[in-house]
């Protein structure tokens, strides 16, 4: 076989591997059988109805959403502040600091989970929503940091200086100049943080109480202990939620890009003549 054929085969294999689980779960969510048979003997939306009727599933879902929201806000705030300090201020041991903050990428989650559990146990904080938020924020932090750092590095430092010379206090200068310019990176980071938290299972398994699990933890417990037919529906809900959030944030990002004229690959427009009321050739392409 040629090299090209090999690569093609590999791509197909990877796609199958990625897609097959999804292709199994979604039909199962609509299966009329209560015994997780594949292929499904018939179709129904009963399991979704049951999912949304059952207060336990709803509690798990809302807990997951709250934790994801909190983790997003926390990691975004801390990550942006850290990135700003690393890029703009003379931070000592810059390399070491950045390395330390991005450690969660390479650290085995199970190690982190056990450690967090032991600390939580000592402090009597097992089951604390806030603690779980913080733990998820830590897991998301590296991605926020890398994204925002890369974005800040493309922005001319003098913009804030010029803003200050025109009367803007440092915070105002940051808010009115730097923040809008890094907004696309912030949105991407927010998305990553939410997705990381929404389906994070290992740490959540350790830090939640059995009676108040997050959605993925409840999915795991259900499939292990009662082989509940709602599980594929719950998984489908997680999937749909993730896709919806991604789409929503993508839309916001596109709207911002349009509003600020920061379209990638827009013409430089050197020496353009004044066109009386000529409309911007934006987006419509």
């Amino acid at each position: 076989m040629t090299m090209r054929r090999c690569v093609q085969a590999l791509v197909v294999a990877i796609l199958l591997f990625l897609v097959t689980p999804v292709l199994v779960v979604i039909p199962m969510a609509f299966s009329s059988s209560a015994f997780l048979e594949f292929p499904p003997p018939g179709w129904t939306t009963e399991w979704f109805a049951e999912f949304f009727r059952d207060p336990d599933w709803i509690d798990a879902l809302t807990l997951s959403l709250r934790v994801a929201g909190g983790a997003m806000v926390l990691s975004l705030t801390v990550g942006t502040a850290a990135a700003y300090a690393l890029v703009r201020r003379g931070v000592r041991f810059r390399g070491a600091t950045q390395g330390f903050l991005t450690l969660p990428i390479v650290m085995p989650t199970i190690v982190y989970a056990v450690g967090a559990y032991l600390v939580a146990l000592k402090l009597g904080l097992v089951g604390s929503e806030l603690l779980l938020m913080c733990a998820h924020a830590v897991l998301a932090l590296p991605f926020v940091l890398l994204n925002v750092t890369a974005s800040l590095q493309t922005i001319d430092q003098r913009l804030e200086l010029v803003a200050q010379s025109m009367g803007a206090r440092p915070w105002t200068a940051f808010r009115s100049v730097t923040l809008p310019l890094i907004a696309p990176a912030l949105i991407a980071s927010a998305l990553i943080a939410v997705v990381i938290s929404l389906d994070e299972t290992v740490v959540a398994l350790f830090l939640t109480e059995d009676t108040r699990p997050t959605l993925p933890v409840k999915v795991y417990n259900s499939i292990r202990y009662d082989l509940n037919a709602v599980v594929p529906a719950a998984a489908a809900v997680v999937l749909a939620g993730t896709v919806a959030i991604a789409a929503a944030l993508g839309l916001v990002r596109w709207v911002i890009a349009r509003a600020t004229g920061m379209r990638a690959g827009a013409p430089a427009g050197d020496g353009v003549e004044i066109g009386a009321g000529e409309p911007e050739t934006g987006g419509a392409r």
């Binding site: 001319d156 003098r158 913009l159 200086l161 010029v162 803003a163 010379s165 809008p180 920061m262």
Partner: peptide, 17 residues
């Protein structure tokens, strides 16, 4: 920000957004 001075830099430093 309290000195009330105008500043112009070599690379213009206009706010791109």
């Amino acid at each position: 920000y309290e000195r009330n001075l105008g500043m112009v830099f070599q690379n213009y430093a206009l706010f791109p957004h």
